[in-house]
Simulated scan of single mutants.
Amino acid sequence: MPPFRISLLSLGKAGPSQLIEEAILADQLNFHRFWVTEHHSNLADSCLPVLIAAIAGKTQRVRVGSGGILLNLHNPLLIAEAFATLEELYPNRIDLGICRGGLDPETSAVLLDGKKITNPVEYYADRVRVLLAAANSGQLGGLAKGGVLPGAWVLGQGVNSMRLAASLGLAYSHSLFHAGAIDDPQVIREYHLLLKSHFPENPVHASIAVAGICAETDSAANLLLDQHTNDFIIPTVVGSQRSCLEQLTEIYEQYQIEEIHFLDLCQGMKDKTESMTLISELPLFNE
């Protein structure tokens, strides 16, 4: 089995300071990417461009990005400008991950200024196209002065986002840890076929996102897992270093992808540090 890349995804539940501490550790352990999520539950998952700038400024080489921007809740031009600015400040180190997602009705209503979205799937696809058009036209807002959008990823858990990514020539990251996610390698196979039919010259960038905990022993990992209470996030890789290696290898062999994003579910920084370190030491790790 050839080696592949492992990247990290963080929910930022402990606040901005620990989020930056996680990113610095990810940089030191040679993880390929460090992505932060948008959920508006605290200051570490709300204003992603600010957080990404802070993380990129505190790290040396790890790619930093959004995992992802809830594009239905934002102006596409402002997002394009923000990430083009980040790319200008930190060349070749920024990723723009976008997703449809959703929040509680009250927060969504405020972010949308009371606007009602009747068809979120179609609305999202239009927002992605507007974002790309703004970046490619070179005539709108700050992008008229030569801004360049960083590499864009579509994040999803089903076929709609996968097909959208392929139709637009974008990279795709498929989650296995969201409740209700499709766990079927055919999703990635279809992405490859569709992408090559639309953009035969484009390189294929696809990843799988998993969630879990790595500890010294299986029992220690399961004990830490007892602290996980989010029913929307399903643990998919849990156990000792050897057990996690077996589980990640199985996912790689099933999906034939080049990269896995790992969402560490440890609650405290001490346990998270151990888990991240053990994952980074796996023999399949490539950087």
Rank of each mutant, 00 (worst) to 15 (best):
E81K: 02
I79D: 03
G138Y: 10
P200W: 06
A125C: 09
R163Y: 04
L143V: 04
V121Q: 15
D45T: 07
T107Y: 03
H39F: 13
T37N: 09
P235W: 10
T249E: 05
A144M: 06
L155T: 03
A181Q: 07
N136D: 13
A220R: 08
L223H: 11
E87N: 15
A44G: 15
A166G: 04
G12P: 09
L263T: 10
Q254F: 09
E250Y: 14
N286C: 11
E201S: 12
G114T: 01
H74T: 00
Q60D: 08
P185L: 04
L245M: 06
L86W: 03
L132Q: 12
A23C: 09
G141S: 11
F177E: 10
N202P: 01
P16Y: 04
A82I: 05
G65D: 12
S167N: 06
I208D: 00
V121P: 02
A84W: 00
T59A: 00
G138P: 07
L263D: 06
E246G: 01
Q267R: 13
A109F: 07
P49S: 10
M276C: 02
R63K: 14
E274T: 12
E250M: 09
P185T: 04
S207K: 00
Y191T: 05
A134R: 08
S219C: 04
H174L: 04
L265V: 09
C214F: 01
R100S: 09
L176A: 07
P150V: 06
I257G: 04
L29I: 03
G57M: 03
S167M: 00
E281L: 14
N119G: 06
A54K: 13
N119H: 12
I260T: 03
I69F: 06
A53E: 11
E22K: 03
P283M: 04
S41R: 13
A82N: 15
A166D: 10
L224G: 01
L223S: 11
L78D: 13
S167K: 02
G169N: 02
G68K: 03
L176R: 01
Q28E: 15
A220M: 08
I234F: 03
G158T: 09
G67T: 08
N202Y: 05
Y123C: 05
R127N: 11
D271I: 02
G15L: 07
S240M: 06
G239M: 08
G67A: 15
H39Y: 13
L25Y: 07
E122N: 13
Q254Y: 09
N136Y: 07
K58V: 01
G138F: 06
V36K: 00
F199T: 00
G141R: 11
N72L: 08
H228M: 10
L194I: 09
I117G: 05
G146D: 04
L77A: 09
A53H: 12
D231A: 08
L8A: 09
G268E: 15
H205C: 06
A215V: 01
E21G: 05
A133R: 14
C47H: 10
L29C: 06
C47G: 14
L131N: 05
V154M: 14
N119I: 02
S197F: 02
T249P: 00
R129T: 12
V36T: 15
A135E: 08
T59N: 00
F34L: 02
P76L: 03
D104T: 08
L25S: 02
Q227P: 00
M162Q: 14
G102S: 11
M276I: 03
T277E: 12
L8W: 01
I234C: 06
T37G: 08
L176M: 08
S137E: 14
A181T: 02
K145T: 05
S219F: 05
